[in-house]
Amino acid sequence: MTNAQLKEELIAYSKTIGIDKIGFASADPFLTLKERLRTQQQLGYQSGFEEEDIDLRTEPERLLPYAKTIISIALAYPAKLENPPKGVKGKRRGIFCRASWGEDYHRVLNDRLQKLETFIQKRVPNAKMASMVDTGALSDRAVAERAGIGWSGKNCAIITPEFGSYVYLGEMITTIALEPDIPIDDQCGSCNKCVDACPTDALIQGGQLDANKCIAFLTQTKEMIPERYRKKIGNRLYGCDTCQVVCPENKGKGEEYQPEFTPEPEKVKPELLPLLSISNREFKETYGNMAGSWRGKKPIQRNAIMALGHFREEGAVPQLQTMLMNDSRPVIRGTAAWSLGKIGTDDARETLQEVNESEEDPTVREEIQHALTMG
């Protein structure tokens, strides 16, 4: 079998196992990306979730000796929720971003990559391969761009002609030399809608992101959310879709997707109040198979507390009072204080004044005192 025949077989096989798009790129170093990453690092725009070693992120041979090709795959996910439950007073709801709908994409993409590895190994027994999804050192986006999966949009997402930016990405480095595909020309042109619409101005310019301002990043942190971002986060529990929703290339997209990503409306748009008292076990059983659960329940609970303050949900006051007075986690107590201040009932203010006398954590005390100044 020639390498050209192997490539054709791989393309055909990928369609039978639920890969929506496959592309092939050389394993040469990503020199332009290396410079961009250095700039990001110098400007302090990185989130801290990335691989710190820029050489590892941009030199495939460091990850797999004698690497020749990188195979990029894309799996489409949905953009619309059928019959979404509506939040009402007393039963307010939060929202998980689309990239967390259905089964955790890490598992699904790893399954597809493993099948590709097995397929290749049977045909080329001496081939070496290394697959990764999201948490690997390589930049999924840079690989997909080079492999012709799509172009890198101003919203810092890969945009495919077929599925817009509603795709998950994964890749496999291999020692087999396969003919690379041709990258797709940038189609964003003068459009700047994603940059203009970003709620926190995290998109500094087209293609450059300050991750520390990005709501998708902020909702995953475990610390207090800076005051200036709380209102902008609204009722988001995990992630943010604004830059995708406003993208003209996504209009009419998101209806074709892999079945594993079919969302359960009650899970992706859950009631907020039950999240305040959910146990670790209940959280894992309910949300453990979703990508949005990877940081545990604390960030989701904190975000739910903020969302209740955002809605000024008076029905949440008793639970928020309990959390402020009894929760062992300062971040949760501090966020509960802020939310009580936003709701602003007499009962909420009385609790804030009472706890202000006994709270020992300086950050929480500061939040309580700030909450008491809210009108």
Rank of each mutant, 00 (worst) to 15 (best):
H310I: 07
E264F: 11
E260Y: 15
G296L: 00
E256P: 10
G239T: 07
T322M: 13
L273W: 08
Q321P: 05
Q301H: 10
I305Q: 05
K297Y: 14
E264C: 09
Q258D: 15
C240M: 07
L209W: 11
L273I: 15
I278L: 12
V246M: 11
K267C: 09
K284S: 06
E260Q: 14
G252F: 05
D327K: 11
G239I: 06
L237K: 02
C243V: 02
C247N: 08
L209N: 14
R281C: 09
C214H: 12
Q321K: 11
S293M: 01
E260L: 11
R295D: 04
H310N: 08
G207A: 04
P248N: 00
I278K: 12
G315P: 08
L273Q: 14
P263M: 01
Q244T: 05
Q208T: 14
R228E: 15
G254M: 06
P265S: 02
S279K: 07
P318Q: 00
T242E: 15
K284Y: 06
N326P: 08
E256G: 08
L324M: 06
R302F: 06
P274Q: 12
E260C: 12
L308N: 01
G239A: 05
E271I: 13
R302M: 09
I278F: 08
D241I: 07
F311I: 00
T221K: 09
A216Q: 08
A307F: 01
P226L: 07
T221A: 05
G239Y: 02
F261Y: 10
T322N: 15
I300F: 05
Y229E: 03
L320I: 03
G207H: 00
C243E: 01
R236A: 09
G207K: 02
C247E: 07
L218Q: 04
C214V: 12
I278A: 10
A316C: 06
G288E: 00
K251A: 12
V246Y: 10
Y257K: 03
T262R: 13
G292A: 02
L276G: 09
K222M: 10
P270C: 01
P259W: 03
P226W: 07
R236W: 11
I305V: 14
T262G: 10
R302A: 07
A307K: 01
E282G: 13
P318G: 02
C243Y: 04
C240H: 06
